[in-house]
């Protein structure tokens, strides 16, 4: 059985916001990637940004300035 690990998952109101997040993260070399929005997140568009807990802690300040709907800790 595949092992799950903890990620921080950002949800967005539109695809445009999700792609904007990816672009900003790529520019700042913030590790993570876009994934289909997990079922635990009830609101938001079909794309979510997933990053490790460690990266989230590292970039928390920059991430707070970005446009997203919610951020949730999930086992994925």
């Amino acid at each position: 059985m595949r092992k799950k690990m903890k990620y921080m998952v950002f949800a967005f109101r539109t695809t445009a916001d999700a792609i904007a997040m990816e672009k900003i993260c790529n520019t700042h070399h913030i590790a993570g990637r876009l994934i289909p929005t997990p079922r635990e997140i009830s609101a938001g568009c079909g794309l979510a940004w997933r990053m490790t807990d460690a990266d989230y802690e590292k970039w928390k300040e920059q991430l707070a300035k970005m446009k997203y709907d919610s951020v949730t800790a999930l086992m994925l």
Partner: peptide, 21 residues
């Protein structure tokens, strides 16, 4: 198809669309 998936081709489309915006 932009905004209809998180796989490579769908994301490529979404990136093009966002760049155009």
């Amino acid at each position: 198809n932009s905004g209809r998936g998180a796989h490579g081709p769908s994301l490529s489309a979404a990136r093009i669309v966002y760049e155009a915006r």
